[in-house]
Design a protein around this nucleic acid. Structure first.
Length: 551
RNA sequence: UGGGCUAUGGCCAAGUGGUUAAGGCAUCGGACUUUGACUCCGACAUCGGUGGUUCGAAUCCACCUAGCCCAGCCA
């Protein structure tokens, strides 16, 4: 169950005191990029808070800057949020409120709380002061109200060039909070907006627009991240002085940061352009679309986010914690089948006759509703190359070696007798004998095998491609190095191997390939050659021979 | 050096004056095992520091230290 975080407490108190009957929350992304796992916290929390207290959850695109926004991003974000299962009660755009925002700004102008300032951007910066020294008043600060009205109307009407002037709030140039030093309300920007096209040439700034958007929608609890904490005074100032009938409350929480992951837009764009990743939905990225393509179940994201709660601290969470929730969900939902990623041929020298069906093996040992599928056995098999070593390296080795017997899962015990190598000395074929009496399900107990490995009968196996992923960024490299110097060259590995035939593979279908991990069918798969992405590996306490560390 | 915020084990995170200081991840033992998986047992912190208030403090006060955010006509 989710931690009862401080925001729940606030909402419950507001409900109890009668301040609000129902909470109204919103997720307000700017449509200028992609959503990633970090955003999932905000999406899910806003969504669940509304749902749990029978309130309303709005999806609102905060599209107040036509220079960086695009309708394409709107569609992408809607798709990602819907995939997460966070269904919004209302879909809004900040740009739908442009007229009301303008009128509210005019209220400020008429009250003498805002003025048109002709200072250049550089001069505004120069007169703002800095962290320790107060700013100085603009020479335009005391313009008459009538003149401000006329000028602001002219701004809207397109009388001025970009940057010629701005509308500013008249607050306090000496405030220790930089946000209160006569912040800009409207800037002139002659450019086409994805939604309002050319209707406007002035656009409101975030600090002014956001509280009004919240107030207009009647948002009760406006959640945002910590860096907006010192914007709260300006948020409240605009709600009050613009005379908004409804008063939303801004509450800040900590961002969800996953250690050693790439989320920066510019950097991802570079990686895409350089061909390092396949796109914003590359399975190595923790963008929501990347996670979806990799095959991560949305349920895992929900559980992860809820386990973390909504703290006011900002830490870096280890991806392993996320991976554990992915395994958790897939453990329960993924059918088990066999796949050999890196095949090594095995010949059963004492096997005579045709391929046989050994048994019907369950798709899920703990849940018979998954059903079963036939397992084939024959003279030629494939096992995982890493499951054979000529000489048993140490007492922990639970796989195949010369003279040792292992169980082939759902089939027989086999004993390795000899092997061939190719001209490079690499093992080519392992010759084994099998013992008919050890058939799976027979209850044979006379000998204990040296472990259990998975396999595929050669003639019935289906060829397939497997993608294995590691962190895009090498976590062991010094964090002070630039990201490009920390890229992991092995972040994606492709294997050509085999998978059980007879199971249909459709895009997105997820499986556990026994002993190899959880995999999902990639969209690039074709009828005769499926492509699988490894969603997450199985946990393993296997210690590679000669090593102390687990791998 | 101005303002805002944060500080609980390797990583997250509960805890709001009296608890053996939850839980998850990771790690280390061990049991079980037709997945070295799962499951199951067990190990693993005195709460940034110092001083105070109190019968009693991670929880209250003071001071200190460390980290994060703020000087876009971005959001």
């Amino acid at each position: 169950m989710e931690n009862k975080h401080f925001i729940r407490t606030i909402i419950e108190n507001d409900l109890k005191s009668g301040k609000h009957e129902r909470p109204i929350t919103r997720f307000p992304p700017e449509p200028n990029g992609f959503l990633h796992l970090g955003h999932a916290r905000a999406i899910i929390m806003n969504h669940n808070l509304a749902k749990d207290y029978r309130g309303t959850f709005n999806l609102r695109f905060d599209d107040t800057n036509p220079l960086t926004e695009d309708a394409l991003f709107v569609e992408g974000m809607k798709e990602d949020i819907a995939w997460l299962g966070c269904h919004w009660d209302n879909l809004f755009f900040a740009s739908d409120y442009f007229e009301e925002m303008y009128e509210r700004a005019m209220v400020l102008v008429k009250k003498g709380k805002a003025y048109v300032c002709d200072l250049s951007a550089e001069d505004i910066k120069a007169t703002r002061g800095d962290l320790t020294t107060p700013g100085t008043d603009s020479p335009y600060r005391d313009r008459r109200v009538e003149e401000n009205i006329r000028l602001f109307e002219a701004m809207r009407a397109g009388a001025f060039e970009d940057g010629a002037c701005v509308l500013r709030a008249k607050i306090d140039m000496a405030s220790p909070n930089m946000n209160m030093r006569d912040p800009v309300i409207y800037r002139i920007q002659h450019s086409s907006h994805h939604n309002t096209k050319d209707a406007w040439c002035i656009y409101p700034m975030y600090d002014f627009a956001h509280p009004l958007e919240d107030a207009i929608e009647g948002i009760t609890h406006s959640l945002c991240t910590l860096e907006f904490e010192d914007h709260r005074p300006i948020y409240d100032w605009y709600v009050e002085h613009c005379e908004m009938p409804k008063v939303p409350r801004q509450i800040e929480f900590g961002k969800l940061i996953i250690a050693h992951q790439v989320t920066g837009k510019r950097f991802i764009r570079q990686l895409v352009e350089a061909g390092v990743v396949d796109g914003w939905d590359d399975p190595r990225l923790i963008t929501l679309s990347g996670l979806r393509r990799r095959g991560v179940p949305p349920e895992a994201i929900h559980r992860f986010v809820q386990a973390l709660g909504l703290p006011k601290t900002e830490g870096e969470t280890d991806v392993e914690m996320f991976n554990e929730y992915v395994r958790d969900v897939m453990h329960a939902t993924a059918p088990r089948i066999h796949a050999v990623l890196d095949p090594l041929k095995v010949v059963i020298t004492n096997y005579e006759g045709d391929v046989e069906t050994v048994m019907n093996a369950p798709f899920h040992k703990d849940d018979e509703t998954f059903g079963a599928r036939p397992v084939h056995f024959g003279r030629e098999l494939y096992i995982e190359r890493s499951d054979f070593l000529p000489d048993k390296p140490d007492k922990h080795w639970k796989r195949l070696s010369l003279g040792l017997e292992v169980r082939l899962m759902h089939a027989y015990f086999i004993r390795a007798e000899s092997f061939d190598t190719d001209d490079r000395g690499q093992v080519e074929t392992v010759y084994c004998t099998y013992d008919k009496r050890t058939k799976s399900g027979s209850g044979f107990k006379e000998r204990k095998p040296n472990g259990t490995i998975h396999f595929l009968e050669a003639t019935s196996a289906k060829t397939a491609t497997f993608h294995l992923f590691e962190n895009l960024v090498d976590p062991d490299k010094d964090d002070s190095l630039p990201l490009e110097a920390r890229l992991n060259p092995h972040s994606k590995q492709a294997f050509s191997g085999f998978v059980e035939a007879g199971v249909p593979f459709e895009e997105g279908d997820a499986f556990q390939f026994t002993r190899n991990g959880y995999f999902a069918v990639d969209r690039d798969a074709s009828e005769d050659r499926p492509v699988f992405n490894r969603v997450v590996a199985l946990k393993s306490s296997f210690k590679a021979p000669g090593r102390k560390k687990r791998t």
